[in-house]
């Protein structure tokens, strides 16, 4: 456990340092997400008005939109971070060093992603506050009620990230696949099937639904049943295990073909 602690600590430190040292990229990322959101938000608001619905009545839809956007940004990081960090390390010539650790490569990548996710969550909350201030549309947010389902459910997305990361180890350039998957992820955080089974089988979908219900339905994490938590955890575990399995197979293929570290 101490090993993982040190790994997490240095990963967090590196992420923070790089955010500061690549400050242009950091600031422009924040700005782009903000501008993109505001454009979509204004579009949605005008759409409501053109339908003869007052902005007040559009309230629920706007809240849903804000929550969806917030979730999508976090999920985007969770699924793409592993693949992008493999591509980045392969091009920097540091991937071999990660592979030589006595900590398994998948563990290193997952811990690094979690540290990145933590930073992105803080950034997203910061962005959310700015968005709410600008739009004047304040949501009543119970942070714990959002973070608990995110924490339980996000491992399913990390599982998908591991699968993409495994492919990145072998093929290196998988950006087009990552681009396609991000559209699939929008569906996961925006559409909720009525059937618990279907929602429980789709990655992160049940957790996303629970977050929506806390943010818009006014319930808290205490209102979820044991079955709700069981479905969220089971779904997360299932996709994470599949992701680990696929990733470890890909590592083996890359090692057999001598592809580790090549870019």
């Amino acid at each position: 456990m101490k090993k993982i602690y040190y790994l997490f600590k240095v990963s967090l430190e590196k992420n923070v340092k790089e955010l500061y040292r690549y400050k242009f990229n950091t600031i422009s990322n924040l700005l782009i997400f903000y501008i993109l959101f505001m454009v979509m938000f204004s579009g949605l608001k005008s759409f409501g008005m053109s339908l003869g619905v007052s902005p007040l009545d559009m309230g629920e839809n706007l809240e849903g939109f804000i929550v969806g956007y917030f979730l999508w940004t976090i999920i985007m990081v969770a699924y793409s971070d592993i693949a992008f960090s493999i591509i980045d390390d392969a091009s920097k010539g540091t991937l071999e060093q990660l592979n030589m650790s006595n900590i398994n490569l998948s563990q290193i990548l997952v811990v690094r992603s979690i540290s990145n996710l933590l930073i992105e969550t803080i950034f997203s909350i910061f962005l959310l506050l700015i968005i709410m201030e600008t739009t004047g549309h304040w949501l009543e947010i119970n942070v714990l009620s959002i973070l608990i389902p995110i924490f339980i459910g996000v491992f399913s997305i990390l599982g998908i990230g591991l699968m993409c990361g495994g492919l990145a180890l072998i093929f290196k350039r998988v950006q087009s696949l990552l681009n396609i998957i991000q559209y699939f992820l929008i569906v996961l955080v925006a559409t909720f099937p009525r059937s618990r089974i279907i929602s429980g089988l789709l990655p992160f979908n049940y957790a996303a639904g629970s977050i929506f219900s806390t943010m818009m339905g006014g319930c808290s994490f205490r209102d979820f049943s044991a079955l709700d938590y069981g479905i969220m955890a089971g779904n997360s575990l299932l996709y994470f295990i599949i992701g680990l399995f696929v990733f470890n197979k890909c590592v083996k293929v890359a090692k057999c073909r001598g592809l580790l570290g090549q870019y």
């Binding site: 101490k2 090993k3 602690y5 040190y6 790994l7 590196k14 990660l98 650790s101 006595n102």
Partner: peptide, 13 residues
């Protein structure tokens, strides 16, 4: 920072 990082990815600190 590099040395600290590479020690960290081996679980040392």
């Amino acid at each position: 920072e590099n040395l600290r990082y590479f020690a960290g990815i081996r679980g040392l600190g």
